[in-house]
């Protein structure tokens, strides 16, 4: 005879603190932004309802289209470089002993540097007159000037982001690699698997979960990048490195257009939400497909 286990609904009360904190930190501010996005805020006590007007203005703004295009290229480049590089670093790191600890500490150091300091470091590092990188490139014959050449500015921002954030991917991948039981490697050795086969059929599938987190984190972070390029290039030369966050800040703080800035924020939020949703489901389906193929 089986006895049905009573369902204890009191556990739901334990979720209440999280709900309250999410409400105050995310939901209420988001609702306020929605309110602002349909009004012309003339003063803190005076506003006029304008409906979809700001959305129309924002969605037809060619500067926003350019900033979105630059942002998509930047995020795609960040993912294309940082994910393989992070995995490669994790694979080449010592697994145990003092060398492993030393490499972990060295690798984590860029992550400990505040974002505005990262921008300042690279601003000095890349200057042709006093910076090591800029000086060396100039001496090697490259016509390098990140303050005047859009391509140089782009590459510098990209390299700076790779330096700052690839360690995060490497640390996540390293943790994932350490969690793979030794029995898998022993089985692969018995089968005479090559180094590539071990990576392709043992390590990569086992890394799927941590890589999914790494991809989502890097996508969201790169899509919201603001401080480093702001300090390094100020969005220039011209608007060459003006990404979405910088453009939003120009509108909200520089021009104090709260209505259009709120509409822009919501469009921005929806773009990130869609990209993360598509990427998450794509990676999940790739993993599920591989599992099906292996069990077939």
């Amino acid at each position: 005879m089986s006895v049905a286990k009573p369902v204890n609904q009191r556990a739901w009360w334990l979720v209440l603190p999280v709900l309250v904190s999410v409400a105050f930190s995310a939901l209420i501010p988001l609702m306020t932004v929605v309110n602002y996005s349909v009004q012309d805020i003339l003063s803190p006590s005076q506003s006029v309802f304008v409906g979809w007007e700001w959305y129309k203005e924002v969605l037809r703004d060619p500067e926003l289209h350019s900033a979105l295009f630059r942002q998509l290229i930047f995020s795609a480049a960040v993912l294309a470089i940082q994910i393989p590089l992070g995995i490669a670093l994790a694979l080449s790191m010592p697994k145990e002993g003092w060398r492993s600890s030393l490499v972990l500490v060295l690798l984590a150091m860029p992550l400990l540097v505040p974002w505005n300091v990262v921008g300042t470091i690279w601003q000095i590092f890349a200057r042709a007159d006093i910076g090591l990188l800029g000086y060396v490139l100039t001496q090697l014959g490259f016509d390098y000037n990140y303050a005047q050449e859009p391509w140089d500015a782009w590459i510098t921002v990209l390299v700076m982001d790779v330096w700052h954030w690839t360690p995060l991917v490497a640390l996540l991948a390293f943790a994932g690699l350490r969690a793979i039981p030794e029995a898998y490697y022993q089985a692969a050795r018995i089968d005479g698997a090559s180094r590539w086969a071990v990576f392709r059929y043992v390590q990569l599938p086992k890394l799927r979960s941590v890589l999914m987190i790494a991809v989502l984190l890097r996508l969201m972070d790169s899509f919201m990048i603001y401080t480093e390029p702001f300090v390094l290039t100020g969005g220039g030369p011209g608007t060459a490195t003006t990404f979405l966050s910088q453009y939003l800040t120009q509108k909200a703080v520089g021009q104090f257009d709260l209505g259009p800035a709120a509409a822009f924020s919501l469009v921005y939020f929806l773009i990130i939400l869609l990209l993360c949703f598509v990427l998450y489901n794509f990676m999940k389906s790739v993993g599920a497909g591989e599992q099906q193929a292996r069990s077939a």
Partner: peptide, 14 residues
């Protein structure tokens, strides 16, 4: 009042 509520947005959230 700081949230600057309007009727259409309130209806949307409801």
């Amino acid at each position: 009042s700081w949230m600057a509520w309007t009727a259409p947005v309130a209806i949307f959230f409801v």
